[in-house]
Design a protein around this nucleic acid. Structure first.
Lengths: 163, 163
DNA sequence: CGAACAAGGTTGACATGTCCACTTTAATGA
DNA sequence: TCATTAAAGTGGACATGTCAACCTTGTTCG
């Protein structure tokens, strides 16, 4: 390369690296959510996601809740056990499929949801309000398109010689 | 709202939850990057980020590299030690500030960068190509706006009674 | 029916990320 | 100059995420 290095970025602009920006944003959003949740109790972020899904009626069977939450199988199993131990949820056999189980909120679980849901909803509105109408219009399709593009590495040649 | 709940989502649509979508996308992008990096060696994702920043000339002083990488202070320290042990980088005293150090790539570090940079660049183009021109035009400002909105929770009332 | 396969959950090992206390060095100010 | 504060790096404790092996239950098909 015969080009002198740029003053700040030196050849490439890290601000234009999409995956890096997404990761940074994700980290900040998680930190913000943790701050809000921590004000009202001792729930962790994955715990809250599970409670929210069940409380909102999105799902109650274990597999459906797990897939909605986007949590790893193993991690999900461990998180459920903690939630049961702490008295936020109950599990009971699932009618029609003995491999799964049903998840039910205890009064403590419902109370946590009642406290937190309004604040997290307000936060969602706060975030959406930070976007311009143009940005709001395209952000979700853009995320979906990127998620699909992230599923494959077929755009690369096969490594060195094919093995 | 007097509207009945929707059939599938039961009151809210998890697909409209921005932080959740961002987190999922971030996870998928990281997995894609790991797959690419794993084809060419044993570098981890944070290790690669550091090498890329130094190789591109974005920064070489420890604090500048750390902040560019967005990695936690403690994590950064440990990752640097591993990179030194594995022979990818060298550290030397930093002229003018004895608290910091300079980071220099070894030949092994340069070689890793030469191998991986083209593939990661191709991946970046692949991702950008998945977006429509409209989406490309607003994605970065949107990310910036959300990152700023994620920095504060001032939009919430003070919790219960002020403590 | 029964064997083979798929789906779901559990567990453990390990990697990564977060948080905090601590030490050293630099910068500030009386 | 000397005390105080801020900035930087280190290391430990802990939470979270990733991956793979394993067992149980359901499903498919000969």
């Amino acid at each position: 390369m015969s080009k002198d290095k740029e003053p700040v970025t030196g050849g490439f602009d890290i601000n234009l690296l999409l995956p890096f920006q997404i990761t940074q944003l994700s980290t900040r959003l998680a930190a913000q959510a943790r701050r809000i949740i921590a004000r009202h109790g001792d729930l962790t972020l994955p715990q809250w996601r599970i409670i929210r899904i069940v409380a909102a009626g999105v799902a109650s069977r274990s597999t459906a809740v797990r897939k909605s939450s986007g949590i790893d199988k193993g991690q999900f199993s461990k998180t459920i056990n903690v939630l049961v131990d702490q008295g936020y949820i109950l599990t009971r056999p699932c009618a029609g499929d003995q491999r799964q189980f049903e998840i039910v909120l205890t009064p403590k679980g419902h109370a946590a949801h009642e406290r937190l849901a309004p604040e997290l909803d307000a936060r969602q509105r706060h975030l959406m309000a930070a976007l311009t109408p143009d940005q709001r219009a395209v952000i979700f399709p853009a995320i979906r398109a990127l998620a699909e593009a992230a599923e494959t590495i077929d755009f690369l040649e096969t490594p060195s010689t094919e093995d």
